[in-house]
Nucleic acid binder design. Sequence first.
DNA 1: GCCGTTTTCGGCCCGACTGTTTTCAGTCG
Length: 590
Amino acid sequence: MQAGIGLYRSGMGVTTGDVVAMLAEMAELEVLEEGSPNAFRVRAYQNAINGIEAAGVDVTTMSEEELTRIKGVGPSIAKKIREYVETGTVAKLEELRAKYPPAFVELTRIPGLGPKTAVKLREALGVENLEDLKAAIDAHAVRELPGFGATSEEKLARAIERLGLVGKDRRTPIAEALPLAERLVGHLGTVEGVERVQYCGSLRRFRETIGDIDIVVASSDPEPVMEAVVALPGVAEVIGTGETKTSIVTREGMQVDVRVVEADQYGAALLYFTGSKAHNIALRQLAIDQGRLLNEYGLFTADGGDVVASATEEEIYAALGLDFVAPTLREDTGEVEAAAAHTLPDLVERRHIRGDLHFHTDRSGDGRASPEEMLAAAARAGYRYVAVTEHGENLAVNGSSREEMLAHRDRLREAAAAHPNLTVLWGCELNVGPDGSLDYDEDFRRELEWNVASVHSHFDLAQAEQTERLLRAIADPTVDAIGHLTGRSIGRRPGIEIDVDAVLDAMVEHRVALEVNGALQRLDAAPDVIRKAVAKGVTLVISTDAHHPSELVRMEYGVRNAQRGWAARADVLNTKPTRSFLAWLRRRRR
DNA sequence: GCCGTTTTCGGCCCGACTGTTTTCAGTCG
């Protein structure tokens, strides 16, 4: 898991992100040592990572005794963390690395080849890497091993061929996975007998990258669904198909698993397939503590007795004594405890949003719709206020000069006349230069009614310079919000590295809002930053950054990303009624 | 390796599918 953008930096040496990576590597290598990803020792390392990430602390400055107070961290892991921080390495890790070199570990990335098989291949045939394995398969040596046969050898050969396309670790950016999943769900919804269909997994939790797409279908007649899945457009390969479950790989290389359940078990199946795994484990443990059993078919009295709840997720959470937990929170980072204590945040939802404060028209070089079209679309979306934020003059090609902006103001006023219930602010997306300088001059920026300042270039400056750059922009009296905080492009470009604490503290001090950008390739700020911002009392603003009416749907995505950061309705500026929003803006500008 | 009004040892989530060892191990989610 990604540790965040410049979060956890501490002085010169090891960061908390490095510690998390070290623990993740320990877990990966212990899988081979223990022979199972479910081994208790493996899970202990993973639990420690969860605990550290949930705590959101800098572990590099903590003593062993302080470290053991983190959930999931005991004396042994605390000692290893200290060893790592002080010496830059851990003896046990070096030992495991020597025993399981990268080329050997790589073998377990082959789908269908787990730790037991890898070790067995090494012991029996001396297989140390992919090349050795290919040779062993070509020589038909694998099929001679006990527990193997011709079929499993051929399956292994096919899996290796596919490796470039779908390794187990391959993750797809949500911007690619979500449209694909929605298409598939649409197809399956038309199959005879299908009552409900929903994508689950990390996609429903709205993680920024997706391993594979899990789809749950409610139907009492699974057969036509299974037939429909293998016949879906874009299927490159059928991995397996049974009575109620089929797995395929699409041409894009995405694995899709479809599972059919009876309608009265739909809620339990949704819960199970949405995960996260850690969330499910926490719920099942809770069920056990209550003398019950929770599985993908329902919540039962002890030993598979009577059904307590199964048809909806809401019923199951309620039966467990928990408040409903939104899919976006199900990461086992405190949500189960909060649901039990009835202290979950009053999460922001799409229906709470009353305005969009960052979008463009064709006044911007990259805009693709007229002011009239964009305002009409905003009015249709039910908004009461919007800020039209064209690029400032410093953004090459796409920016607008002072004169162009003034003419644009008149154009907006005319277009706004058609929408008497919509307050239209004449705004700007200011460009934050490498030194933190902004477009135009301060007097002109003051005339603009809403300014969101964003980084669009110089992504590779050092952390200190990037931080300084943003601090200067935040301190400027004309900046109302910071747009797409790090400028990241998920799966393509990492964001700028910044001192997140310093930046968020400055936003509180200067009453500048933090944008949650709903573009799927951005989803910036990231959830861990949002959660930190919420804790510090930073005001959030969820925006679409739309360049076309079709992109206004991004508001839903921005909301879900904000939910992942535990953002409540009250934390989000653009949930306020027009009058309160304008009052906030006046106070800010004073 | 962690944890505990079940506490210093003995537990640790649950089930489908596959192939092969016709009763189970391995892998996966």
